[in-house]
């Protein structure tokens, strides 16, 4: 696990910069995807819950650096969402297509619920309209997870220790 933590930091920092400076200029159907959530989810599905949580934590903290939300709120919501979906992962049929798509939608909805709840608890006046407006992001994430899962799969192959013949 330790080797990919060093990978998570630059990847998530770069994604956070993209998230604040680039993605809002190119919204997809009026929505901005949360790339760090999808990357952490894909990594968690490929490498297990432990690494998924660490990537979610780092990704959330990096995002919070560019937000007026208190530091740690996104990290907390990301971690809980990814823990929840990887926890119930076994309940779904193992499929490289079906699993990430469903997991992305579920993780997004859980993340949004926890994140908005946290903001509400911290005094932000979040209303139901905001929840309704953000819910379609789950569909967008379902569509985007496959290329991201594929890229992360390649990265996983690159960093996975290779067997040595003796």
């Amino acid at each position: 696990m330790s080797s990919t933590i060093y990978l998570a930091l630059p990847v998530m920092l770069a994604l956070a910069v993209l998230q604040t400076a680039v993605l809002p200029r190119f919204p997809i159907l009026g929505m901005v995807p949360q790339l760090p959530l999808l990357v952490a989810l894909a990594w968690g599905l490929l490498r297990g819950i432990n690494e998924g949580i660490v990537w979610a934590f780092i990704g959330g903290l990096c995002l919070d650096l560019f937000s007026v939300a208190p530091l740690g709120t996104t990290a907390l919501a990301f971690m809980l969402a990814i823990t929840a979906v990887t926890w119930i992962e076994n309940a779904f049929p193992t499929s490289r297509f079906f699993l990430p798509v469903v997991m992305a939608a579920l993780a997004t909805l859980i993340y949004l619920f926890i994140y908005l709840l946290l903001l509400r608890l911290l005094g932000q006046p979040i209303d139901l309209q905001t929840v309704a407006k953000l819910s379609p992001t789950a569909l967008l994430h379902s569509a985007l997870i496959l290329p991201i899962y594929w890229i992360m799969h390649l990265l996983d192959q690159l960093f996975r220790p290779r067997p040595i013949k003796i």
Partner: peptide, 28 residues
């Protein structure tokens, strides 16, 4: 697994409280 999860959740909550009370401004 649970150890890592509990520690990271604890750190995230601590950071949220510290930032919300203005104690992380210099670090940020």
């Amino acid at each position: 697994r649970w150890g890592v999860f509990i520690i990271l959740v604890g750190v995230a909550i601590l950071l949220t409280i510290l930032d919300n009370t203005g104690n992380l401004d210099a670090v940020l």
